[in-house]
Design a binder for these strands. Structure first.
Length: 245
DNA sequence: CCATTAATTTAGT
DNA sequence: ACTAAATTAATGG
């Protein structure tokens, strides 16, 4: 939890200088954008990026830090959150593999606006932001792909927030369950990756309401719950609840 | 290194 | 807010 993220940064910087050439070329988890790069550009990327393992619970990028890096999530699940006015953590969303972390803020702000924490053990590539910017300026197709991903992120964020603000707890919980099953895990059976407390911070309610609503869903036969394992039994009803708030 | 216990976190009411 | 259960950390062998 209280990981001195500086260590990560120092390690990243160190290995930036020593990372070998050809790594990005051979990467099996390239982003759509990076797939577009030419061999020569991939070499540049490889020389200015570094893959790191981040254990569960550690922070990938902390809000308020200088944005010298962008992180590409190769594998694992991350939560994007920030501190609200009262100092309480507000979760923006979860992010799954093959996405960039800190991109939208990184391009325009000198400081990171969000904190990214590992919900699982991660493989992350730290990429020098200046190199990324240079690649974008030099290669229009690459820049276009990066813009696409920022745009998509923007759209899903907006819908998420609008829905959240216009729905009651039931609708929000239903949304969250559909979010996990459809977007994050892409199956109707999954293990809740966060605690009830965190789920509450994600959908803007209290831990108690989350617990209460989930057990209601369970007793109504919508969900099967044991421990953190959730199976969606009645997807249609769940979507109705989501739709009607 | 493993087992036991203490402390913290989480879920449910 | 309180309790029970579960997870994690600390201790001692």
């Amino acid at each position: 939890m209280l990981s001195p993220n500086d260590d990560v940064k120092v390690m990243a910087k160190k290995s930036l200088q020593t990372s070998g050439i050809g790594k990005c070329k051979d990467c099996k988890d390239k982003s759509c954008a990076v797939s577009i790069l030419k061999n020569q550009e991939l070499d540049v990327l490889a020389q200015n990026s570094s893959e790191l393992k981040i254990p569960k619970g550690e922070i990938v990028i902390r809000e308020g830090e200088l944005t010298t890096f962008v992180a590409y999530l190769k594998s694992g699940l991350v939560k994007e959150h920030l501190k609200g006015l009262n100092g309480k953590s507000q979760i923006i969303k979860l992010i799954k593999a093959k996405s960039y972390l800190g991109l939208s803020a990184g391009l325009s702000s000198k400081m990171s606006l969000y904190t990214y924490s590992a919900l699982e053990d991660l493989n992350v590539c730290y990429i020098d932001l200046n190199i990324l910017k240079k690649l974008m300026k030099d290669n229009g197709n690459f820049a276009y792909e990066i813009l696409l991903s920022v745009s998509r992120e923007n759209i899903t964020n907006s819908f998420w927030f609008v829905n959240k603000n216009q729905k009651q707890i039931y609708g929000r919980c239903a949304d969250a369950m559909l979010y996990f099953s459809k977007i994050i895990f892409e199956k109707n059976k999954f293990t809740l990756p966060i605690t009830h407390f965190e789920l509450a911070a994600l959908i803007g309610t209290t831990r108690e309401s989350v617990t209460r609503t989930l057990s209601k869903f369970k007793s109504d036969g919508i969900l099967q719950i044991n421990e953190k394992n959730i199976t969606i039994l009645n997807n249609k009803l769940l979507e109705n609840i989501s739709k009607n708030g």
